[in-house]
């Protein structure tokens, strides 16, 4: 007899998986940022509230500055009754102008604000011309 095993098959693992919150898709928001140019380069500020240094990844690839940060799951107990939930993290990609030396940048994260300082490339730095 030809028996079709339709009964008691192992349920599809995907549909019976029990997953932790870590498996849900991450909501990465684009953070607020601003940049100021000055004689010696540019300063960038990026708002990253709730982010610790260990959760921040900053990379320079050529003229691209890439930032990805996780905001640890510190959501308070209970249900959200007002407002939008905080993002799970942040992602930002900026292009640095040709005169900026991305490889020489410095960054500092304090109280949820990232401050990046990008100097000018040597060739673009102000030079004093001696008048003979």
């Amino acid at each position: 007899m030809n028996e079709e095993t339709t009964c008691c098959e192992t349920p599809d693992t995907e549909n019976t998986a029990i997953t932790t919150r870590d498996d849900r898709p991450r909501r990465l928001a684009e953070p607020a940022w601003n940049a100021t140019r000055h004689d010696h380069g540019a300063d960038i500020e990026v708002a990253l509230p709730g982010v610790r240094k260990e959760d921040l990844k900053l990379e320079v690839r050529g003229s691209r500055l890439a930032l990805e940060a996780r905001r640890p799951d510190q959501a308070p107990a209970g249900r959200l009754i007002h407002g939008e939930p905080a993002p799970d993290g942040y992602r930002l990609e900026l292009r640095l102008g040709n005169a900026l030396d991305g490889s020489a940048l410095s960054a500092r994260l304090e109280s949820g604000l990232l401050k990046v300082s990008v100097p000018l490339v040597k060739a673009a730095q102000p030079k004093r011309i001696e008048i003979a």
Binding site: E45, A47, L48, P49, G50, A75, P76, A77, G78, R79, L80, I81, H82, G83, E84, P85, A86, E110, S111, G112, L113
Partner: peptide
């Protein structure tokens, strides 16, 4: 504008982001 309010059995927790602000 970005105030978040959570309610649980014992109370409420309000959260606001103030990046770059000192305590």
């Amino acid at each position: 504008a970005d105030l978040r309010v959570h309610e649980d059995d014992d109370g409420w927790t309000l959260e606001v982001d103030f990046p770059g602000v000192a305590r």
